[in-house]
Amino acid sequence: MATSDPGMTNPNDRLSAAVPRRRFVEVLLGGGFLATAAAFVYPVLRYLVPPKASDLGSDSVVAGRVGELKPNSGKIFRFGNRPGLLIRTATGEYRAMSATCTHLSCTVQYRDDLRQVWCACHNGKYDLNGRNISGPPPRPLEGFEVQVRGEEIFVRRRREA
């Protein structure tokens, strides 16, 4: 039956070829098993090692570090796959909200001269709680919860009550 192997079709060689052929099959099979085992085990081992980028989970991200923001200033941070706006008010309080304008989805910014959140696209203005107070925005910006833990400022979505 081994004749089905295309490399060894000569029936006269059958006896003399038997031993090396067996060795060959064993090496092939053993090598194959080892190689596939490596191919399966390697990804699994790599998978088991926890990645460096720690998973903050979910609905909370580090928006910045304490001391990074002067009073009366703001910065954009990444929140999931949308931008968020972290503001430090003139009195030193932290506020955070979605940075996507509710009018046409431009990214809003903090204006230290107005002490308001401002959208450059059509002059929309929001107060520091995210309420739309002038211009085209039809809805307030979604507000986020801010927690200062140690050196880091955590922002997370408000839980529905």
């Binding site: 039956m1 081994a2 067996r22 099959v25 092939l28 099979l29 098993f33 596939t36 191919a39």
Partner: peptide, 26 residues
Amino acid sequence: VGLGMSLIAIGIVLAGLWLYVKKIES
């Protein structure tokens, strides 16, 4: 590339198994 190498390894095992089956059945 990883897939290709794994597939080669799998191919080797398949060939090995096939030859082995033929051998024990001959």
